[in-house]
Design a protein around this nucleic acid. Sequence first.
DNA 1: ACTTTACCTCAAGTTATGTTGAGGTTTTAT
DNA 2: ATAAAACCTCAACATAACTTGAGGTAAAGT
Lengths: 147, 147
Amino acid sequence: MADRELSVGEVARRCGVNVSALHFYEQKGLIRSWRNQGNQRRYKLDVLRRVSVIKAAQKMGISLQGIKGAFDSLPDARTPDKDDWAALSLAWQSELNERINYLERLRDSLDACIGCGCLSMKSCPIYNPDDELAAQGPGPVILDRKA
Amino acid sequence: MADRELSVGEVARRCGVNVSALHFYEQKGLIRSWRNQGNQRRYKLDVLRRVSVIKAAQKMGISLQGIKGAFDSLPDARTPDKDDWAALSLAWQSELNERINYLERLRDSLDACIGCGCLSMKSCPIYNPDDELAAQGPGPVILDRKA
DNA sequence: ACTTTACCTCAAGTTATGTTGAGGTTTTAT
DNA sequence: ATAAAACCTCAACATAACTTGAGGTAAAGT
């Protein structure tokens, strides 16, 4: 069938997530649906991309809240096109770069610091990395903010 | 006072964590203490390093469970020395490297994938990175396991 | 027609990592 | 000696991101 609309189970299967997760995302405002006669959810095809992007962003360490923030910058009226997604990608790419950078610094100081006395001191580079990432909202688990 | 032993408040202050966190770490078996006459916790100086290492490892994205696993490989009888910590560091360094690598791959495929149709397909490199990190236990937030 | 599968809602449970508060004891400072 | 600061335990709350289950409806297969 030339399905222009998808049921929740179909989306779940095609995206590799549980139906409950889709309910959850909808409740959080990350995806949208309408209902059919029998009150069942129906989705546009573009929900597949959204869910996929959610999963990709999560792998990057971005919270649902952060993802929602990014999604909110997508056009509301029309279905997001390639350029819309590219803009998102760009923003996240630099976030990823910062994160990678942070971990690299952590790695480089790890060996030097873990065995010496400095780890417990104020001066330790691991303990007090001079630069913190600018994370909006409640930061991802992997980072923490200025102590 | 030449304190060979520390109170919980002192450890908290020197490590920049809350007293409640120290209670919590103790309950999870990450640090140890004994009690004085009045039932108050007392710590050896080496607790400072332990707590610092906990915090550093957390920044790397390692869970408390994972940290406990690593700590369990430290000598039980004697206070861990430089070499013991160095071994830990080495293990974590390669874990960090894998993580960095993973994020780099994610970053590199992000732009190519997010705008195209592949994200929702089985073949997408973001969606199905061919190599998964070998994470023991319930993995860190930033990664997920073979779907 | 009838059964099975899919779906619905809403509340409660789960894991990780702590924090907060109540009610009570110890230490420390004055 | 007394008041303040620090500590104790234990239970409950907080947040993220979902999952599970109960009780009931809709759609699909035969």
